[in-house]
């Protein structure tokens, strides 16, 4: 499925969690990031947990 991390399109397996999407995103950007330290938000500004579920076209943002 395709989801968006910081507006960058990420193709990932169906059923992926927020954590899996961020691992793939940061692998692609080359940044070394402690995922547990991130503030992750959905498209509405709500905080979401790393083990939260994603669905097709979900948009998440990190701070």
């Amino acid at each position: 499925m395709n989801i968006y991390v910081n507006e960058k399109k990420i193709s990932i397996f169906h059923g992926a969690t927020v954590k899996s999407a961020l691992m793939k995103y940061y692998r692609a950007t080359g940044e070394k990031v402690n995922l547990d330290s991130l503030d992750v938000r959905d498209a509405y500004g709500n905080s979401i947990a790393l083990d939260g579920s994603l669905s097709e076209s979900s948009r998440i943002f990190t701070k």
Binding site: M1, S11, I12, F13, H14, G15, A16, T17, K19, S20, A21, M23, K24, R27, A28
Partner: peptide
Amino acid sequence: NSYMASVLDFDHEDPGQSTF
């Protein structure tokens, strides 16, 4: 596992499906 499925950057046609 989902770690490998997330970080291994190799070309593959099937996006994969979690077994949950």
